[in-house]
Structure formats: C-alpha cells, structure tokens
Design a protein around this nucleic acid. Structure first.
Length: 178
DNA sequence: AGATTGATAAGG
DNA sequence: CTTATCAATCTT
C-alpha cells in the first residue's frame, strides 16, 4: 500500500517534482471503486517567466489556481474538448505546476483524465485532503528520460526547447512522439 | 494534413 | 459583444 503525498512534498519546486512524480500512483475514487494508475509522463510549467506557462501573462480567472499552495489540482479545458490535469507545486503565490501527460495504459493528457473521470469540477481541490483525487508513493522509483515539452510552439526559444518533459523508461509504456 | 470543440482572454 | 487562440485527439 502506498503512502499519500503530503504538503511538504508538494511544496517542492515543479522543476523537481515533474521528474519525481514519475512512478507515483495517481488515485481516483469512482462509483466503481478506487482507480490507481502509475504516472508515466509529466511536464514542468514553472512560474511567470516560463513563456509556455499559462501564468506567463499574470493572474487571471483561469490561472489563479496556479498561484495556490502546492498540492492543489489545476484542471482546465483544452481545445474545447479535453480536460488536462496538473498538480500545483511550490509555495503559495508562485505559479508552478506539473502536467500529468500519461499514466500506465493511457498515453496523452486528455486520455488520462477521460479514463479517470477527472474534469473541471475537481479544479482547485486539495490533493492532500481530498477523498476524490490524490497521489500515493509506494516506493517504486522508475528510471526516466527528459525531452522537450509538447504543443508550446508559441513559447520563446529558451523555454520552448528546455527539457522539462519526463518519460518513464518502461517497456510497457510508449510515449507518443511529436 | 484537416476537423473538431468551447472556455478564455484581449480588444472594440 | 466579437474574435483569435489553444499544455489534444481523432479521422482522412
């Protein structure tokens, strides 16, 4: 049985947690029972200076959740179709988050949320205390590789090309390439 | 390569 | 109010 991740853990910077969350268990309570999937692919979005981060243009109605304390869930609708799930990290007042791009069995951030029934009703909840959605550590520490982030061509070059995407090294998991 | 889809943010 | 844009995914 895994141990739930707590505030101290989530208070670390997104630059650290994006890699460390690889191999953790994303847990969701549903009518059918509790789903647990191992996180296989993440991306780091780090503060207002990161031109790929939603908060790069400051705090708005949508991005205000990014400024919350570490452990808050940030779920938003992408392209009018897909809910994308991020873990807010770091200290309150500093917009950082880790996008969960893939879990075992489901490659792609929209597929993860669909499989686990994660939608915008969970936006802003606290992963430390929620009975609906949380993350556990069962001690597994998979190897991973780093790559460029996906779908952020609008960012300035130094942030467009930084290796802030992390992918598990596991034969069962095949990350979708660009 | 093109279609889909609707919330969001900026501009008039 | 109008319009462009978009942390994607599926089909052609």
């Amino acid at each position: 049985m895994g141990k739930r991740l707590l505030r101290r853990y989530y208070s670390q910077p997104a630059t650290v947690l994006a890699a460390d969350l690889i191999g953790k268990l994303l847990c969701r309570r549903t009518d059918a029972g509790i789903l647990k999937y191992r996180i296989a692919e993440t991306e780091c979005y780090y503060r207002e200076q990161d031109t790929a981060c939603h908060a790069s243009k400051g705090k708005t109605e949508r991005t205000k959740v990014l400024y919350e304390k570490g452990g808050t869930a940030y779920v938003y609708l992408c392209y009018g179709i897909h809910s994308l799930f991020n873990v807010v990290t770091g200290k309150e007042g500093f917009p950082e988050a880790v996008l969960i791009r893939g879990v075992e069995d489901y490659n792609g951030p929209g597929k993860v949320t669909k499989a686990m029934s994660i939608d915008r009703s969970l936006n802003g909840i606290d992963l430390v205390t929620s009975k609906e959605l949380w993350i556990e550590d069962d001690g597994v520490r998979p190897e991973y590789t780093a790559a460029k982030r996906v779908g952020i061509d609008y960012a300035t070059p130094e942030y467009r090309d930084v290796l802030w995407r992390y992918i598990i090294k596991d034969g069962r998991y095949k990350a979708v390439q660009n």
